[in-house]
């Protein structure tokens, strides 16, 4: 019940945000410096100043595509992607602030990811590059890029935190994360546990220093 009340509050704050920001809607390009101020105030405890992952199952945000970050924040705010923790923090951001924070994280330096089980990398690479025709898993590289660099349409995966990747794959397969037009739900649902564990390690091992933002 208390949870419901909090969620309602978040939704309501979201509404007010939409309305108050409406006249400024034309401003879509984010300013990384303004974003830095907001991030330091609200996000730093969990996403660190350098955009790495100091807490378990928390995503690295450094060098993620700004378009993807904006979409995720708006999805949390609107309830299209649900997570108690993030929903509450994003609920307080306005339409004007979201592109600034996104621009800040998108511009951060890349810090290589952490592989926790190198013995899985070979299987992980095969899943990532070839998929599995038997069970209908497309190659991850098809959408996320050969090196996990991502695009305007698909998130960067290179260097992502292993625990976070595994948690997202679990949520997709269980139908708990549904803001993906069904694409990742289908992919995750077709994967064996061994394939999922391995591909998460391989993703953590990928290093892409530079990506083009449109």
């Amino acid at each position: 019940m208390r949870l419901l009340a909090i969620q309602l509050l978040v939704v309501l704050t979201g509404c007010v945000g939409v309305l108050s920001a409406a006249p400024l809607f034309a401003q879509t390009k984010g300013d990384p410096e303004m974003g830095a101020t907001i991030a330091a105030r609200v996000c730093v405890a969990c996403h660190a100043e350098d955009g790495t992952s100091p807490m378990p199952n928390t995503p690295r945000l450094a060098r993620q595509h700004a378009t993807y970050l904006v979409k995720q924040m708006k999805d949390y705010r609107a309830g299209r992607r649900t997570n108690e923790v993030m929903g509450n923090f994003i609920g307080g951001l306005t339409d004007e602030e979201i592109p600034h924070v996104a621009a800040y994280y998108a511009a951060l330096q890349v810090i290589p990811g952490v592989v926790t089980d190198p013995s899985l990398l070979e299987l992980g690479r095969r899943v990532y590059d070839d998929g599995n025709p038997g069970s209908g898993i497309p190659a991850c590289s098809g959408c996320h890029g050969d090196e996990g660099e991502g695009t305007r349409r698909f998130p960067r995966l290179a260097g992502q935190d292993v625990g976070y990747t595994l948690e997202q794959m679990r949520r997709y397969a269980a139908g708990e994360r549904t803001n993906d037009r069904g694409l990742m739900q289908t992919v995750a649902d077709r994967m064996s546990e061994a394939e999922t564990l391995a591909v998460a390690q391989y993703i953590a091992s990928l290093i892409v220093l530079d990506t083009e933002e449109e």
Binding site: V11, C15, V18, L19, R81, G175, G182
Partner: peptide, 23 residues
């Protein structure tokens, strides 16, 4: 009035987001 409409939209979205894998 406008405020009520926008908020209703947000609530409906939140309610409709409960899991369903693609058909």
């Amino acid at each position: 009035m406008i405020i009520r409409l926008v908020c209703l939209g947000a609530l409906v979205l939140a309610a409709g987001s409960a899991s369903a894998s693609p058909p």
